[in-house]
C-alpha cells in the first residue's frame, strides 16, 4: 500500500467537495479497493470515505412502495431487512460475514465488477440509481465491465428498488473466489418479467431479453425450453468456458423461476 490521505466527510455535500480534487477517490466498504491498494495496483492521493455519512445509510420504503437502500448501507443490513426477500437473500450470500459487514451497495454498483451480485439485482428489479446530482435508470446505469454512467466525482447515494411480485436470485459460484461464475436474478412484475445475468458476459451484467419475453407469457421454467444463450461474448477462463457459462445462464434462469413461481 502506498501512502494516502484519508478524508471522512459526514455529509454528502462535503463528500462531493472532497471528491472534486483530481487525485481523490471514493472509498465505500473497501472490499475491492483496499485489496487493490494492498497490492499496490492503485495509488490515489486521497481516499474519501463514504461510510461516515449517515444520510447515505439505512433502508426505507418510499410512497411508491419502493425499497430505498442508502448507498453506504452494508450488505448485512440489506440481508437482515427482509422487505424485498429475494434482495435480502442475495445480499446474505455475498462474500463472507466480514465482506457483508463492510461492503456497501453503492461501492458494489459503482465498481460494477462483472461477477458481482448486486448489479444483477439492480438491473432485474428495474431499480433507480440515485446520485448526488440525478436519478439514473438501471438500464442506463450499467455500461459494461467496470463501467457505469457515473461521472467523475459522482456518488451513488441511494438505490430505489421496485419490489416485484416474485423474484429469485440463483448464483453458481466460481469455486475459488465464490463470486458468481453465473448469477441470474429473475423479477416478475405485473407488467412483465426481467432477467438479469451477472458473471457471464464480457460486457458485464446484461438482460436476457428472450427469456424475459418467454417468461412474461408463461412464468415457468418450461417457457425456457427451446431458448439458448449464445456463447459469443461470454467470458472464458480457468473456471469455465464461454459455452459453459452460456449453458449455466439458462440453467440458473430456470432455477430462479422454479422457486420464484
Amino acid at each position: 500500500m502506498y501512502n494516502f490521505e484519508i478524508n471522512r466527510p459526514s455529509t454528502i455535500a462535503d463528500a462531493v467537495k472532497a471528491l472534486a480534487s483530481d487525485e481523490a477517490q471514493a472509498l465505500g466498504g473497501g472490499q475491492t479497493l483496499i485489496p487493490t491498494l494492498k497490492q499496490r495496483l492503485a495509488s490515489p492521493e486521497t481516499l474519501v470515505s463514504l461510510t461516515g455519512i449517515d444520510e447515505m445509510k439505512g433502508i426505507c420504503v418510499d410512497d411508491d412502495g419502493r425499497l430505498c437502500v442508502g448507498g453506504a448501507t452494508i450488505h448485512a443490513d440489506v440481508a437482515a431487512d427482509g422487505r424485498y426477500p429475494a434482495l435480502s437473500a442475495m445480499a446474505s450470500h455475498i462474500g463472507d460475514p466480514a465482506v457483508r459487514n463492510r461492503g456497501t451497495i453503492g461501492g458494489s454498483i459503482a465498481n460494477n465488477d462483472p461477477a458481482a451480485c448486486y448489479p444483477a439485482a439492480v438491473l432485474a428489479s428495474n431499480a433507480t440509481v440515485v446520485t448526488n446530482t440525478r436519478e439514473i435508470d438501471a438500464d442506463d446505469y450499467f455500461q459494461g465491465m467496470f463501467t457505469t454512467a457515473l461521472e467523475e466525482g459522482e456518488i451513488v447515494t441511494e438505490v430505489k428498488f421496485p419490489v416485484p411480485e416474485v423474484a429469485n436470485y440463483q448464483k453458481f459460484v466460481q469455486p475459488a473466489s465464490r463470486f458468481a461464475l453465473v448469477g441470474v436474478f429473475v423479477a416478475k412484475f405485473s407488467d412483465g418479467v426481467r432477467v438479469a445475468v451477472t458473471g457471464a458476459s464480457e460486457d458485464g451484467v446484461f438482460r436476457w431479453t428472450d427469456a424475459e419475453a418467454a417468461l412474461s407469457d408463461n412464468f415457468s421454467a418450461d417457457a425456457l425450453e427451446g431458448l439458448s444463450v449464445s456463447a459469443d461474448g461470454m467470458m472464458s477462463d480457468l473456471h469455465g468456458s464461454a459455452a459453459y457459462r452460456a449453458h449455466l445462464v439458462k440453467v440458473m434462469t430456470g432455477r430462479a423461476v422454479t422457486p420464484a413461481a
Binding site: P175, A176, S177, D237, L238, H239
Partner: peptide, 23 residues
C-alpha cells in the same frame, strides 16, 4: 475437486491468488 496451479503458455501463473486458486 478444487486445487489447480495453472500456467498460461507464456509462463504466467493463472491461479496466483485465492481469487483463482481454490482451497
Amino acid at each position: 475437486l478444487l486445487e489447480n496451479c495453472a500456467y498460461d503458455a507464456e509462463g504466467q501463473i493463472l491461479s496466483g491468488s485465492y481469487m483463482d486458486y481454490a482451497m
